[in-house]
Design a protein around this nucleic acid. Structure first.
Lengths: 142, 142
DNA sequence: GAATACATTAGTAAGTGACGCAACTTTAAA
DNA sequence: TTTAAAGTTGCGTCACTTACTAATGTATTC
């Protein structure tokens, strides 16, 4: 079961925005994309999905860009994942097509809830990257 | 994030085999497939994957079929899912391609462990379908 | 009003999942 | 000992999804 790259990228951008939340500075898409090694055009689509739920705020026009919508301490992984994939993180087939499919689905629904509550305990602040010394080698480049 | 149908089917077959574990009767693939509304050809591939880890036992030749490998009380959802998908249920990209990708991956690895432990608490006995009255309508048919 | 940056939508290419099929092997029963 | 019922294995494939690219639209600032 692969976690969609989209969701992974969303976590990365949120972490990146969290890093400068205190300063209040607006971050351009291109800057965010290069910092996380992603395609800017694709990143826009992810940010667009994070905006309607208030996780990020955008400013258009010149000197525009993105900011975190709320303080990073109030944001959990569950919320980010939910914005990207909806409330059901582990999707099963909804239809009942066999004797035991109902109970199996119920079991996985419970597993989904447990996952949700585990994710809601992981705070965005835990994802903020350590500051790199200006002249140190950037070891995160592949 | 979709749970692979393969894994869902595996749970269903295991539940079906658990139902008759006490009697020790051998179940044919075709019978199992119709009971769970699955394609026999595909179900074979799933059972083949469950066999090497000892979750099911097969008897070949005439009057052959499948049995549960162990008592259902000793089998958890974690084990079934692990047999189908490996130990990492939530796969993330392994490479470090951005400033915060490392911490993001670590966070999801934690989430994966929490999911695992949640699944290990769900026992196969909980998946055994309720017995249907012989003449009652089979309400599990779609 | 021109430059700049986000917004939106359409398109696409590669990968993956969920099967179907066919040939082979094993074994109980006649 | 033959036969037929069953599991075993591997290949093929079709459709769907994902991860992008690209082009065009829209808002803001100087």
């Amino acid at each position: 079961m692969r976690l969609p790259l989209k969701t992974e990228y969303a976590c990365q951008v949120m972490a990146q925005l969290a890093k400068t939340y205190a300063t209040g500075e607006v971050r351009r898409v291109e800057e965010l994309a290069t910092a996380e090694g992603l395609s800017p055009n694709y990143l826009v689509q992810i940010l667009t999905q994070l905006r309607p739920v208030g996780l990020v705020v955008s400013k258009r026009g010149k000197n525009g860009g993105y900011l975190l919508g709320r303080a990073p301490e109030t944001i959990s992984l569950a919320e980010i994942a939910g914005a990207m994939e909806g409330d059901i993180l582990i999707e099963t087939s909804n239809g009942i097509i066999g004797m035991s499919s109902e109970k199996v689905n119920q079991a996985w629904a419970r597993a989904n809830q447990e996952l949700q509550s585990a994710l809601s305990e992981i705070c965005l602040t835990e994802l903020i990257p350590d500051d790199v010394e200006p002249n140190s080698p950037q070891d995160w480049v592949i």
